[in-house]
């Protein structure tokens, strides 16, 4: 009697014959063996693609790579001439949003630089001058520097900001420069960028203290 292989739960049951699915051999008809009909069929397919795509390229009828991406035809783009727009929530280069008077909304609370896992944001806070109505109420960023080369584009700074002062909705990706120095974006440059809608402000209105819409405490109530 042949020695039975010990039962092993990780393999097939011992002793039982292997049950396979019978797959018929491919038919070797003269048509298949002569190779010619398939050759012509293949040539017809490649030529159809060739003529259709060549015509559309030459006549500028190429399908739009975003709007008509599900249609047949050439699907790649000539990059610098044609650019696919990024989706709305794409995190591009940062920008600093502005108030109505053109100053940054940033109050130099350092939330963003604290939240930043790459530590690429450097802020130096400044006090408003004596007599300024914002003095003692909030500060402003004397310097606001982002190292776009260190940035990992996680978006935590945007989440952390309590004033909606930093956003990543420019829709621009980081440009390749030829020196590290050029990746250091400073306050004035960050304030230059606009959002996708072309505005330098944010969609959320800012309620300055003293405005009738201002919900919180104002300076007059400070005497208590």
């Amino acid at each position: 009697m042949a020695k039975r292989t010990p039962s092993n739960p990780w393999t097939k049951p011992a002793g039982a014959p292997v049950q396979g699915k019978a797959i018929p051999r491919p038919r070797r008809t003269a048509e298949v063996q002569s190779y010619l009909p398939e050759l012509f069929r293949g040539m017809a397919i490649t030529m159809r693609h060739f003529f259709k795509n060549t015509k559309e390229m030459m006549l500028g009828q190429k399908p739009d790579p975003v709007l008509e991406a599900l249609n047949e035809g050439v699907t790649t783009i000539c990059y610098p001439e044609e650019k696919r727009p990024y989706p709305e929530r794409f995190r591009g280069l940062h920008r600093l949003t502005l108030r109505d008077d053109g100053s940054p909304r940033c109050v130099a609370c350092l939330c963003c630089s604290t939240a930043c896992p790459a530590q690429c944001i450097h802020i130096e806070a400044g006090e408003y001058g004596e007599g300024d109505k914002r003095r003692g109420y909030e500060r402003f960023p004397k310097t606001f520097v982002i190292d776009e080369l260190r940035c990992i584009f996680c978006g935590f700074c945007v989440e952390a900001c309590p004033c909606d002062a930093i956003r990543m909705d420019t829709g621009i990706h980081a440009t390749p420069y030829d020196s590290r120095e050029q990746f250091i974006y400073r306050k004035d440059l960050l304030m230059e960028f606009t959002g996708r809608d072309g505005s330098r402000k944010s969609a959320n209105p800012r309620h300055e203290p003293g405005d009738p819409t201002h919900p919180g405490l104002s300076r007059e109530q400070m005497d208590h």
């Binding site: 739009d64 975003v66 709007l67 000539c78 696919r84 727009p85 990024y86 989706p87 709305e88 829709g171």
Partner: peptide, 16 residues
Amino acid sequence: AARFAAAMGGVKPEPQ
């Protein structure tokens, strides 16, 4: 992205 492209009038402003 398609809405942005539609607002631009298509991804390709010029024929190739």
